[in-house]
Amino acid sequence: MKGKVVSYLAAKKYGFIQGDDGESYFLHFSELLDKKDEGKLVKGSMVHFDPTPTPKGLAAKAISLPLE
């Protein structure tokens, strides 16, 4: 699924993505496929991810940034 980063707290390594389906997904650095892309996780960045339901809500897994 595609989505847009709505927040990312680099110090805490987490944030949120708004998916194309309108839902909010929890984003964690550990799910970023290329850790070098962390600096690109800023508000408004477009990402691809696997939407995954968890006991705490919806989460983004296997997060990647589109090729530039």
Rank of each mutant, 00 (worst) to 15 (best):
F49M: 02
V5K: 02
E31A: 12
M46C: 13
I63K: 01
L58R: 09
L65A: 06
I17M: 02
P66D: 15
I63V: 13
K61A: 08
G44N: 07
M1P: 03
K12W: 10
A11P: 08
D50K: 14
E38K: 04
F16E: 04
A59E: 07
D37G: 06
A60R: 00
K4Q: 10
Y14G: 03
G19V: 03
L27K: 00
D50A: 13
G19L: 02
V6L: 13
F16T: 06
P66Q: 14
L27V: 05
D50W: 15
P66V: 15
A62M: 10
E68G: 12
G44S: 04
F49V: 00
M46Q: 12
F49I: 02
L27D: 00
K61T: 11
V6K: 13
A59T: 11
F29W: 14
A11K: 12
Y8L: 08
L33D: 04
K4D: 03
V5D: 01
D50Y: 15
V5S: 00
D34H: 09
L65K: 04
K12L: 11
H28Q: 07
E23Q: 15
I17C: 03
K35F: 08
I63M: 03
L32N: 00
A60S: 03
K35P: 14
K12N: 09
L9Y: 15
S30G: 07
H28C: 08
V6G: 05
G22Y: 04
M46A: 11
M46R: 15
L33S: 06
K2T: 14
L33T: 08
S45M: 15
V42T: 11
P51E: 02
K4C: 13
Q18F: 10
G3R: 01
K43F: 11
P66T: 14
K36Y: 08
D50E: 14
F26Y: 09
A11F: 10
D37R: 05
H28L: 07
I17D: 00
Q18Y: 11
K61Q: 07
F49S: 01
F49N: 00
G57P: 03
I17V: 07
G44M: 04
S24Y: 14
L9W: 15
A11N: 11
G22W: 03
Y14M: 06
E31I: 03
D37M: 10
A10L: 09
G15N: 00
E23H: 14
K13G: 10
I17F: 02
Q18W: 11
D20R: 05
K40A: 07
P51G: 09
I17A: 04
V5T: 03
K40N: 08
S30V: 08
P66C: 15
E38C: 05
V6T: 12
E68F: 12
D37K: 07
K61Y: 09
K43L: 08
K56M: 10
P66W: 15
D20T: 09
H48E: 12
F16G: 01
L9A: 11
I17N: 00
